[in-house]
Amino acid sequence: MEKVIAGKTVAVNEEGYLTDFKQWDKSIADELAAEAEISLSPRHWEVLNYLQTEFKNEVPLSIRKIGKSGVVDIKEFYQLFPKAPLKTATKIAGIPKPASCI
């Protein structure tokens, strides 16, 4: 599927996750965040950068890993990205939805 985000046509899956990280940029992140009713602060960006680094290193993401990341604890993660934080944050970061149950 294709979707126009921040004036750019990008490939997304049926849940709206970008399927090609190379198409991601910060304006796309801002618009996806707005869809989730989140306004991105520097703190959000630290977390998003961390998620993208893990993705590039092919590390599977989970809530437990986030908690141990040293970047953000679980409580703050839920505050930054209320409602389904891992799903929301990965979508904004332009990376696939984690398949983790934990």
């Binding site: 809530i63 839920y78 209320p82 409602k83 389904a84 934080p85 891992l86 799903k87 149950c101 934990i102």
Partner: peptide, 8 residues
């Protein structure tokens, strides 16, 4: 319980 929270 955790899975529920992860889904919002």
């Amino acid at each position: 319980a955790n899975g529920a929270r992860m889904e919002g």
